[in-house]
Design a protein around this nucleic acid. Structure first.
Lengths: 250, 250
DNA sequence: CTGGTGATTTGATCCAGATCACGCAGCGCG
DNA sequence: CGCGCTGCGTGATCTGGATCAAATCACCAG
């Protein structure tokens, strides 16, 4: 049925597996998306009928840059990174953004009918609803109100990318590190009396890629902040001891 | 600002002036937008009724970063730059993109109902169709097929921004200069037997801002290319003598 | 405990590109 | 005319962060 489409990369990956789930479950999950608040019931049903539930193990790729768009993915649970790569001798990645539940992946490529402009990989175990392009267009045609809402996803992405460009161009490495930490903290941190504690879903390497600097530079920036008692580094967990001070270094 | 419709900045700017134009003219103009190919006639009429024709002199600002979204602008003629700024002692701009006719400005902010995330300024004299937010939402509600098309604009913008991030992070200054020249050439160049000739709509300063480097570095990069007979610089006009060579420096 | 493998830190250089400083050309204007 | 102003080119420094090199740490299998 979807024979013309090359199988999306998740279908070929060991970490991913499809699960049969009853209809109602999926429908309920979709209704939780803030994005679709106030949208007609029929839209959810139509989407739910088309959706495949997808469990993606941490670290497995959902799609890669340049790959033809097979589907869009509604993130129900977990966190994923979007990134760009360069090959060649000195291969590198740049993280474009980290998205959590309630977001949508692969939408731009699906709507434009062009190859993916970035790769997407699960940072934690994820639960996604995959909707194939054909089905998406079908549902969009039948429930335009829902389709129009999808605009917001792209508007938000564009805004975030503009922010990223601004950071890369205008701010120094230490400033970007500070911002990255604050972002991670608001996403993943628990507030305690010592400060904001979290165990980042990003490795040091990935933090560097998100910040647009080398792993070594990131390491140095962190140690520096620890030395100044703004951070506490203990194994994998990071505590922001002086959030205000960190913010002032932005 | 007072009320929900604070006057958009163009209304306060000397270079801008509104023109009374008959209905049919505007409608014809809108139908030329490739973006809306195949869309129902009613959509154009509804948009045309709401649209104001706006003439914007070269160099005048359409909207600024942080300003509340008043309207969206359909670019009928001319070229405009989108940019980010930092204030402070060492104020700088970074050009996020240059758009020409057939594109739409200010859409993200309008849809999100948030302040503009970037500024927009005319590079050349422009003719725009301005549609106020309220009117836009009204038309989108009545003609969802057209509304859904708008997401292509945002998808394209997001893709372009991803490209920009990739360039900034992965490529060296000379490589970015080469790309910028090639982009300008395809947009604005005439092919002659000597090579591709154009008189850029961007000043040197702006070329530097688009490339993410200093004016001096841009100047040097250009002279270098001229020295190697890849470019010819003559006053304001640039001729790309060896497009292939330039492309290989990407 | 022992060795191995990968991630992280630390330390020591290097260099692309920013910054600073200056000269020069055009251009409107009293 | 001379004056200031803005935009552009070019040379001379300076430096943030990349890169190279090596040590340390964490974790696991045996």
């Amino acid at each position: 049925m979807r024979g013309e489409n090359a199988p999306p990369s998740w279908a070929r990956l060991p970490g991913a597996r499809c699960r049969a789930v009853e209809h109602l479950t999926k429908l309920e999950g979709l209704k939780e998306f803030e994005l679709f608040e106030g949208i007609d019931e029929g839209f959810f049903q139509a989407l739910a009928i088309s959706a495949e539930v997808l469990e993606l193990g941490a670290g497995t790729a959902l799609y890669r840059e340049g790959e033809p768009s097979g589907a869009v993915y509604f993130v129900r649970e977990g966190r994923a990174k979007l990134y760009r790569s360069v090959g060649g001798p000195k291969a590198r990645d740049q993280i474009l953004g980290v998205v959590g539940d309630g977001s949508v992946l692969g939408l731009g490529a699906a709507l434009e009918g062009r190859p993916q402009s970035h790769g997407a990989t699960a940072l934690t175990d994820c639960v996604l609803y995959a909707v194939f392009r054909d089905d998406l267009f079908d549902v969009m045609g039948r429930f335009p109100a829902g389709a129009v809402r999808l605009n917001r996803v792209l508007a938000a992405r564009a805004r975030e990318l503009e922010d990223l460009v601004g950071d890369l161009v205008f701010r120094s490495a230490p400033q970007r590190v500070a911002r990255m930490l604050l972002n991670l903290a608001t996403e993943e941190g628990r507030v305690t009396k010592r400060g904001v504690v979290f165990e980042p879903s990003l490795s040091r390497q990935e933090m560097a890629e998100a910040t647009g600097i080398s792993r070594e530079a990131l390491s140095r920036a962190l140690s520096r902040l620890a030395q100044e008692d703004i951070l506490d580094l203990d194994g994998k967990t990071i505590t922001i001891l002086q959030p205000a001070e960190l913010r002032s270094r932005t």
